[in-house]
């Protein structure tokens, strides 16, 4: 399998990328980790006439907390995220997510930014970012804007990014005390997309009531899904196992999976429930341990 003919330019700054994107429009594709784009080009499912390689832009691979926000540069590799002590200690949900994406070799190139910008509901970070209420920062010819994650995923492979915009950063609120998150994925084998996966982020008050709940689901609809009803059911409640089961059931009901080789739709919905329940339990444990 051979990619189609393409032009290539390695850019050195975000501005340079944005200028090129403005000139080339939809003919161009941003080459980040390339771990989805290049295989699609080999199958000629993607035939961009221009690749804008952003990998040489300096300073786009930061993982740091700034002003109450965790900032992830668009070029942070999944393997870097996986190995980050900051992430491991403070954002275990992100660590959970990074270590189940594709396989370890793919993760050495795949980027967090690319995982979101691809707009693939089968990718893992979208669910996590939905659960964490992240903001996606994009730079275009008119400057920078911040897109709430809820507005980011528009359709299958379609995001709120304009053709002349570059995703530069992901911002995640620093977790408050008594918070915990988890991502739980069920896949047929390493390297597979999820049959179903759930990202959960919970915040408890001092009494143990749930004050904030985020639930994102992977590969269960035409776009990454937030289980709004399930979140709502948790709010203000004491976290009993019964409550978690109820929320997991609501999350499963929110899904709209398609039947395919991973299983029939009703099976995926059932696994969605199991994954949500397990992610809820783990997130709760972590929140309770984080008191």
């Amino acid at each position: 399998m051979i990619p189609g003919p393409v032009r290539y330019r390695r850019v050195r700054s975000v501005d340079e990328a944005v200028v090129l994107l403005s000139q080339l429009g939809t003919d161009a594709k941003v080459l980040s980790g390339g771990q989805s784009l290049i295989p699609m080009m080999k199958f000629r499912l993607a035939e961009p006439s221009y690749l804008i390689d952003i990998n040489a832009i300096p300073g786009l691979d930061f993982i740091e907390e700034r002003g109450g926000v965790l900032c992830l540069g668009a070029l942070v590799r999944e393997s870097t995220l996986e190995r980050s002590m900051l992430v491991r200690q403070r954002y275990p949900i992100l660590h959970d997510t990074a270590e189940v994406i594709a396989d370890p070799l793919v993760r050495n190139l795949a980027t967090v930014g690319g995982n979101l910008a691809h707009g693939d509901p089968a990718n893992d970070h979208p669910a996590t970012m939905l659960a964490l209420r992240a903001q996606v920062v994009a730079r275009g010819p008119n400057g920078e804007r911040s897109i709430p994650i809820d507005d980011f995923f528009v359709d299958t492979f379609v995001t709120a990014l304009q053709p002349d915009e570059l995703l530069t950063e992901i911002r995640i609120p620093v977790p408050p005390p008594r918070s915990g998150g988890a991502y739980v994925k069920f896949e047929r084998k390493v390297g597979d997309y999820a049959i179903a996966a759930a990202g959960v982020f919970l915040v408890l008050d001092e009494a143990g009531r749930i004050t904030q709940a985020g639930i994102g689901l992977t590969n269960l609809s035409y776009k990454p899904l937030r289980a709004v009803d399930a979140e709502r059911a948790l709010l203000g409640q004491y976290a009993s196992d019964e409550l978690l089961r109820y929320a997991a059931e609501l999350a499963a009901q929110a899904t709209d999976p398609v039947s395919d080789l991973r299983g029939p739709a009703d099976y995926k919905r059932a696994v969605a429930r199991t994954m949500t329940l397990r992610a809820l339990r783990r997130a709760l444990e972590r929140a309770q341990a984080n008191a």
Binding site: P3, R10, G34, S79, P104, N108, L109
Partner: peptide
Amino acid sequence: GRPVKSCTVLAVQVD
């Protein structure tokens, strides 16, 4: 120094 799948990297990228 990082292991990658060379079927999913363009030669121009490793310049």
